[in-house]
């Protein structure tokens, strides 16, 4: 479903990725963990075409994103990026709801204007999604009238309204107050259980452990280690993984080491 091969990416002269490979099959749930600044967000943004990259290949649902001429994408590249974006939905750490629109308009904007759905059909779809994230009653609110958790759930509904084949979550709960983290995670969990192909960057180790089929550990622009939650959390092979886990799981039971 998503395949990344030999990804090279640098910011100006500052190299970040020096050849990253990752395959995600249909229905698989992959969690990216790793220290701050290790490149998790950038990785997700490359897959979604929000960041250009210098070398390598990203294929999403059969559509290829090529690297080299991406700084100034030509017509064919732009078309490919758009097709990829229609296949994968993205949810951001900062929600990024459109503040000048109601919840309903946030959700139906892209379906009506990009997919050319009728306003009626799009609204029906939106109501169904809002019911799923348990926010029907907020349909006419503006984003500024919602809590952070509610905003993030609307953002998820907005991405789902485009009927994507896969979802990218970039630290969906990192800007939330602790008491709102649960409500967002349970929405994601429900989605995963329905079989949505999912790539999620997160600092919620328990959650990653619980929902992910595979954990990928990033550090300084490299994939240090990848494996099942059991392998990564119980039997990490690399010292860097262990050090990272020690730091974030200080109060939890540490793997034997």
């Amino acid at each position: 479903m998503i395949s990344v091969r030999g990804l090279h990416k640098s910011f100006g002269k500052q190299p970040l990725f020096r050849g990253i490979d990752l395959e995600i099959t249909k229905g698989e749930v992959v969690a990216c963990i790793g220290p701050s600044g290790s490149g998790k967000s950038t990785f997700l943004r490359c897959i979604n075409g929000l960041e250009p990259f210098q070398q390598g290949e990203i294929v999403v649902g059969g559509v290829e994103l090529h690297s080299l001429n991406r700084e100034k994408p030509g017509r064919a590249d732009r078309e490919a990026i758009r097709k990829v974006r229609l296949k994968v939905g993205m949810v951001f750490q900062q929600f990024n709801l459109f503040p000048h629109m109601t919840v309903l308009d946030n959700i139906i904007e892209a379906p009506t204007r990009v997919l050319r759905l009728s306003r009626n059909d799009a609204t029906q779809r939106a109501v169904g999604l809002l019911r799923r994230v348990n926010l029907e009653r907020k349909i006419d609110s503006h984003p500024s009238e919602l809590s952070g958790g509610e905003q993030q759930r609307v953002a998820i509904a907005r991405a789902l309204a485009m009927k994507p084949e896969a979802m990218l979550f970039d630290e969906p709960t990192s800007s939330l107050d602790p008491e709102m983290v649960g409500e967002v995670l349970s929405v994601i969990q429900a989605l995963v259980e329905e079989g949505m192909t999912t790539l999620i960057a997160t600092h919620e180790m328990d959650f990653a452990r619980e929902v992910a089929d595979r954990i990928v550990v990033f550090d300084q622009g490299e994939i240090v280690e990848a494996g099942t939650p059991e392998e990564i959390f119980r039997h990490p092979k690399k010292d860097r993984t262990l050090m990272f886990l020690r730091r974030v799981l200080r109060r939890n039971a540490l793997p034997p080491g």
């Binding site: 979604n48 758009r82 974006r85 990024n96 459109f98 204007r113 990009v114 485009m162």
Partner: peptide, 25 residues
């Protein structure tokens, strides 16, 4: 910047995102 990025990630073209999302704000 997140406004433009969110619009793009929903499959909107730059022009549409500008007209519907960025300019009104």
């Amino acid at each position: 910047k997140g406004q433009m990025e969110a619009a793009l990630s929903l499959g909107m073209s730059r022009r549409l995102a500008l007209r519907r999302i960025v300019l009104p704000q």
